[in-house]
Amino acid sequence: MTDMQDIAVSLAQDLIRCPSVTPAEGGALQLLQERLEGAGFSVQRLTFSDTDTPDVENLFASIGHGAPHFVFAGHTDVVPAGATADWSHGPFDGVIDAGLLYGRGAVDMKGGIAAFAAAALAFVAERGTDFGGTISFLITGDEEGPAVNGTVKLLDWARAQGHVFDACIVGEPTNPVRLGDAIKIGRRGSLSGIVAVTGIQGHVAYPHLAHNPIPNLLRLLAALQALKLDEGNARFEPSNLEIVNLEVGNAAFNVIPARAEARFNIRYNDEWTLDGLKAKVTAVIEAAADRSCDWSLEFRRDASESFLTRDDRLIEGLADAVEAETGQRPDLSTGGGTSDARFIKDYCPVVEFGLVGQTMHKVDECVAVVDLKRLAAIYRRFLDGYFPVAGAE
């Protein structure tokens, strides 16, 4: 197992050294392609396009035959590093210092990709290609971006090619404090919107010749802020609505603006459907607006539904592997933000398990080398259980 774990570490370093700031490929997919093809995987690179979004390169790799068809999913794109001078080590240098591997993407999520790639490579090296099923990789370069030309289209493409997936692990950093804390078995949905009020621009000294949109907007926002969506349930935290931005576009002190808008995001549980939540928000604004309020409401197209995975073979198999390697049984969680699992859940049961996420998106993002090695061991143990040797008890 040591060779596999060392490969996980060196591959993570090499991936970090690829400056794949979303949506740039940065050499990361090329690196994976070379490693996987060298082990016998069939690899295809696919670039998808759409209006008003950048083109994005993606990768699909597969080995084995028939069902069950298991998928590892992840993304090689990373968020910008910010000021390089603020980092203890270069954000794309992949330096190991005092047992920590530093670099943008170390935990989110090049480390996770390196761990499951190393596990799959070791599994295939030992078992060959006739192991009683298929292992595939779905790797996108669009998770940190608009998420339009990545996993969504890659999944559609895979279905059109005849691929039927039975289960998936997304290698996102799911653990809050230590490796083994939690498996994500679901996520709350996300709905973003913009509420705007139009008025009449004018001079502040002559308010009767203008119509200030700000008081009306504040009244609408107060109604949204007072909205209590639900109490949560045994599976999910309560839904919450947050005002995230206010914009007037007026730098002058003597001008009444013509328009004011606010942006909001709702993280919602399975007490709601997407259509039901949109209707609720619309009704709240309609009730709060008076006849003088010229308002509009736009819901963004990147909304996602909540979901909960119920697949004992996947969940218990992964929990068993985590417990065997870490000594603790992971909690089954639905907390946190969104991930590409929200798309994959429409194709097969999906869970998320990866590294500790405390440094993701931060300066000096880093992963403990020991955690990276243990994660590779967890993935390998899971594969051994998911594809048992014929005749084994």
Rank of each mutant, 00 (worst) to 15 (best):
D142W: 00
M109T: 01
C18D: 08
D302A: 07
R267V: 01
N245M: 12
D108Y: 02
F123C: 02
R35I: 00
L36G: 02
L121K: 04
R259W: 08
A98M: 01
W157G: 04
D364M: 09
G249M: 08
E37V: 03
T282C: 12
A223I: 07
H163M: 13
I243G: 12
A321N: 01
R380Y: 15
G189L: 03
R381K: 13
S42M: 11
C348H: 06
I200R: 15
V71I: 15
L138M: 09
S339H: 03
W157F: 14
A67P: 09
H65T: 14
S239H: 00
L372A: 05
D166P: 11
V356T: 03
K362C: 12
V281M: 11
W87S: 05
G111R: 01
P91T: 05
D294W: 05
V124L: 07
A252E: 12
L224N: 07
A106W: 04
E25M: 02
D86C: 12
T309E: 04
V356Y: 07
D166C: 06
R380H: 15
Y268L: 08
P54Q: 10
D294C: 08
Q358H: 07
V148G: 08
V350F: 07
I243P: 10
P213K: 04
A287N: 14
T76Q: 10
A158P: 11
F131L: 03
G82T: 03
R374Y: 08
Y386M: 13
V351Q: 07
R301A: 14
A260M: 06
V170M: 06
H208D: 13
I194Y: 09
I200N: 09
L372K: 04
A147G: 14
G74H: 10
A289N: 10
P330D: 07
S10A: 10
E325W: 00
D93H: 05
R235T: 09
A392S: 15
N240S: 15
D294Q: 14
D384Q: 14
L221Y: 11
G337C: 08
V248L: 13
D311W: 00
T326A: 06
G202P: 10
S192G: 15
H89G: 11
A324I: 00
A390Q: 14
C366K: 12
E143T: 00
S20G: 07
G193W: 15
A251Y: 12
G141T: 03
A260V: 02
F253I: 08
Y386Q: 14
V79K: 07
A376F: 00
A122S: 13
N265F: 09
W272L: 05
A39N: 10
L31V: 03
H208F: 15
W295R: 06
Q225P: 01
T338P: 05
D50G: 15
L241G: 00
R188S: 03
A283K: 10
S333T: 01
L241P: 03
I7C: 12
L100Q: 13
V71T: 13
A24Y: 00
L36W: 08
A85M: 05
P207K: 03
A85L: 10
K362M: 13
A376G: 06
